[in-house]
């Protein structure tokens, strides 16, 4: 990697093999370079290459095959004139907003509750986290069954005599997004709870002692002292939950398959359907590029903040 500067070398060259041979420069770390090939190829070909390819072809009119002519922003214009796409985007925004706020606040709340020297804490934790181990397909199918209007929870409670009980969100186009939310929260809050609990436990005991000595009630300590100290954990959780929301796909496929009608469509499903079912690749690529832009809007400021924070420190 580093070469001796020439003037220093020349001076002592006669005293032995003073200069690093060209062969050594090439073979130095050779094994390491060979071992890094999979990573280098993945980065260059997949993460950079495929992404650029997708962005490029999103400006073509490719249909069944990616061979189309350059058409500028036509695919994007079409995209935002398609009601299914617009519904997908608004679904994602609503689902995303609710999911983010509820996952974080419920996750934090559960973590605080579990932090109260609760008996059987590990049992509670295990129960709250197990859905996270399951596939979104499994989650979606279970809730699909529970929300079945005739034989699921609604039917059961009506049969038991509670005639007015309504839980048919899965069949209502204006409510189906909340059905998704219930299943999504079921799967995801446990994970956030574990992150938050870890964050709570990482806070110095002395903070608690100091707060107690100062006579600050526990809830105020949590809200005004501990919560601000957990900024890092929160940021992590927001990024992770946020990235997951943008990718929301399997759950929708299993729970509602986008229905009723197009009421629960999401962007990831739009991309898949146009790419592999409708045979309109240009359109699919434009949609996926929009997904990329969305993720960048979430990630870049965060990365910038973290990066900025780091360089300040060093």
């Amino acid at each position: 990697m580093t070469q001796a500067t020439s003037s220093d070398e020349v001076r002592y060259q006669d005293e032995g093999k003073a200069r690093r041979s060209l062969g050594r420069v090439l073979t130095h770390n050779l094994s390491a370079k060979i071992a890094a090939t999979p990573m280098v190829v993945t980065v260059l070909v997949v993460f950079i290459g495929c992404t650029l390819w997708t962005i490029w072809y999103s400006f073509t009119d490719s249909r069944l095959l990616p061979t189309g002519d350059f058409v500028g922003f036509e695919q994007y214009e079409r995209l935002f004139n398609t009601s299914r796409w617009n519904r997908s985007v608004s679904n994602l925004i609503w689902y995303g907003a609710f999911s983010l706020v509820l996952t974080l606040s419920l996750g934090f709340l559960l973590a605080v509750l579990l932090d109260q020297k609760v008996r059987f804490e590990s049992a509670f934790r295990t129960i709250m986290l197990y859905p996270f181990a399951l596939s979104f397909i499994v989650t979606g199918l279970v809730w699909q069954w529970i929300m079945n209007p005739t034989l699921g929870l609604q039917g059961t409670l009506r049969n038991m005599g509670w005639e007015s009980f309504t839980f048919d969100w899965i069949a209502q186009s204006d409510m189906v997004i909340y059905a998704l939310l219930i299943a999504g929260l079921w799967q995801g809050t446990g994970f956030v709870m574990v992150l938050m609990l870890a964050g709570l436990r990482s806070i110095d005991d002395d903070i608690w002692k100091a707060a107690r000595v100062d006579g600050i009630p526990a809830w105020r300590t949590y809200l005004f002292i501990v919560l601000p100290m957990m900024r890092g954990v929160f940021v992590t959780a927001v990024v992770l939950v946020g990235a997951g929301i943008v990718r929301l796909y399997d759950l929708v496929v299993a729970l509602t398959n986008g229905g009723p009608g197009i009421a629960s469509e999401v962007p990831a499903k739009y991309v898949y359907d146009y790419m592999f079912t409708a045979g309109n690749i240009g359109q699919a690529l434009a949609a996926s590029t929009m997904m990329l832009v969305t993720v960048m809007i979430i990630i870049v400021p965060w990365a910038y903040l973290e990066f900025g924070g780091r360089s300040k420190k060093s």
Binding site: V43, G49, T54, P66, M275, S288, T289, V295, A303
Partner: peptide, 27 residues
């Protein structure tokens, strides 16, 4: 066994993990 650029490749790798799969799936 860091070599020139290894950290950059790693950074892109981590950054790449946030790219939605839909973006890379067709290529």
């Amino acid at each position: 066994w860091k070599f020139k650029g290894s950290e950059i490749f790693f950074s892109i790798l981590i950054f790449g993990s946030f790219i939605p799969y839909q973006v890379m799936i067709y290529p």
